[in-house]
């Protein structure tokens, strides 16, 4: 995400905006693979609550992250109206559960405003910058920390090494 931001410095970028509750967010369209409707996920044991589980994306096992819960906005109660944005983060594909997709917006890098200094770790972790569009505020979010931190389940890797042995 950051790489893309740098390599496109000064260029026009396309972003996909979506809604969670009454807030609007957006991500770079280059990291979005597809958008699909909600299908029930298979819950994974021993995972944080914001990982809804995994679904079958044409044969691949795709983890679903409840972006609302991830950003501390409360757990979603997924329904048929909810949307999964399939994104590519590093080498992995991750589905983001959001309320609805709004728009595709084109912006210059200069129009992205700095995130105001708020005393909230979640904001600092996820919000890269703000956009003002037609009187709305859209947060440009970074996807780098959407999945659980690696060290959180280092023990999980330990059990994998047993499998591999």
């Amino acid at each position: 995400m950051n790489d893309i931001a740098q390599s496109h410095a000064g260029e026009r970028r396309e972003l996909i905006s979506f809604r969670i509750g009454d807030q609007e967010f957006c991500v770079d369209i280059m990291s979005v693979r597809e958008i699909r409707g909600w299908t029930p996920a298979t819950p994974l044991p021993q995972t944080p609550g914001y990982v809804k589980g995994v679904i079958n994306l044409r044969g691949a096992v795709l983890p679903i992250v409840d972006l609302s819960a991830r950003m501390g906005l409360g757990m979603s109660e997924p329904s048929a109206r909810h949307v999964i944005i399939v994104t590519r983060i590093a080498e992995q594909q991750v589905g983001l559960l959001v309320d609805a997709v709004c728009d595709i917006i084109t912006v210059d890098d200069e129009t992205v405003q700095q995130t105001p200094d708020v005393a909230c770790e979640t904001v600092k972790t996820f919000v890269q910058g703000l956009l003002a569009m037609d009187g709305r505020m859209i947060s440009l979010i970074s996807l780098d920390h959407v999945l659980p931190e690696r060290d959180l389940d280092g023990a999980g890797e330990h059990s994998a090494s047993i499998l591999a042995a």
Partner: peptide, 9 residues
Amino acid sequence: ANYRPVPGI
């Protein structure tokens, strides 16, 4: 591939 090892799975 898309997530990480899950203990017990």
